[in-house]
Design a protein around this nucleic acid. Sequence first.
DNA 1: GTCTATAAGCCGATAGAC
DNA 2: GTCTATCGGCTTATAGAC
Lengths: 194, 194
Amino acid sequence: MTMAAASSTRDRIVSAAAKLFYAEGIRAVSVDAVAEAAGVTKRTLYYHFDSKDDLIAAYLDGRDQPNLQLFQKWFAETEGDVATKVEGIFRNLARAARHPKWKGCGFLRTSAELANMPGHPAMRIAAAHKKKFENWLHQRLETEGIDGADVLARQVLLLLDGSFAVVLLHRDPSYMETAGMAAASLITLALSSR
Amino acid sequence: MTMAAASSTRDRIVSAAAKLFYAEGIRAVSVDAVAEAAGVTKRTLYYHFDSKDDLIAAYLDGRDQPNLQLFQKWFAETEGDVATKVEGIFRNLARAARHPKWKGCGFLRTSAELANMPGHPAMRIAAAHKKKFENWLHQRLETEGIDGADVLARQVLLLLDGSFAVVLLHRDPSYMETAGMAAASLITLALSSR
DNA sequence: GTCTATAAGCCGATAGAC
DNA sequence: GTCTATCGGCTTATAGAC
């Protein structure tokens, strides 16, 4: 069926774009390179996407749910109180960052590249992604009866995104464990004053 | 004198590059654009710099000391204990981030763009810059007799760089004040257990 | 929906004159 | 040290056939 084939082609293009954009950066990767990696011609790519900007947005949109679910899985499978479970996210992230292909957070790196285009569709997708994580964490902390769970969720997010940036710069994943300790300290402090 | 003229021309090129690279991103700005903004021809630019990569490194190198001194000034002119003085850095940064031309941290944005070139000269300059800030803060905290001042300095750095990334994404400088509160909490906690 | 072919222009970098 | 002029290649995007 033509529709099914179209959908599958589109997926292959997004998948190839995701691999290249994440590995090399958005502006460093040409539309030609994405088309070739996907095994289609440029004309086919432009049939499925209006522009390169449209393709960038599709790349980030495809990473939204998988990334969120990974964080939630790491939280869920860590045993202990909520501070320990949050610290588990940082520990797992440090492990992931030791993989040679790790290149930081695709959402943050894209937003850094598109800093001069605040209204870019990809910027809105990235902002919404980070907000979803913050809201999810807010709920987890509020369930524990923590006062100021909203502020605390933001502080953990700041430590998380800070560790993405710093580890990308120094190539030293131990900063992520240090960030996790800080997050656990702040949460424990809040728990102790319930 | 020819030497003096050469030096001044070089400075004008670096200054024009800094303005454009920071405002629009490294890969979004062409060598032609930098030359035109500096009021020289491309041939003159290539007389002073071996390559665009060389120019990028000169841009970041020129921002190293001014940025560090700004942070130190904000720390020095804030009244109070060391936790309050560190929080003063975040408060001043939040004020700076409200300027319409603010586009995050040039060092972090450059490292995000060059993530696929770990050995790039600009990456080493950026990493050294952040390390200098961390070391300076480490000394300030150690002077206060804090145990684990090295870990604490890293956690403040993580909050600082996290706030650069998050504020750039959401365009909401209040995250910087939230990060400053977290930094102050962590420092106060360490002070109380001396 | 996918192809071949190409437009129109910008990219980093260089040649050679003065 | 700065200029004019230009190279070869790559860029996003499109025309038109099937």
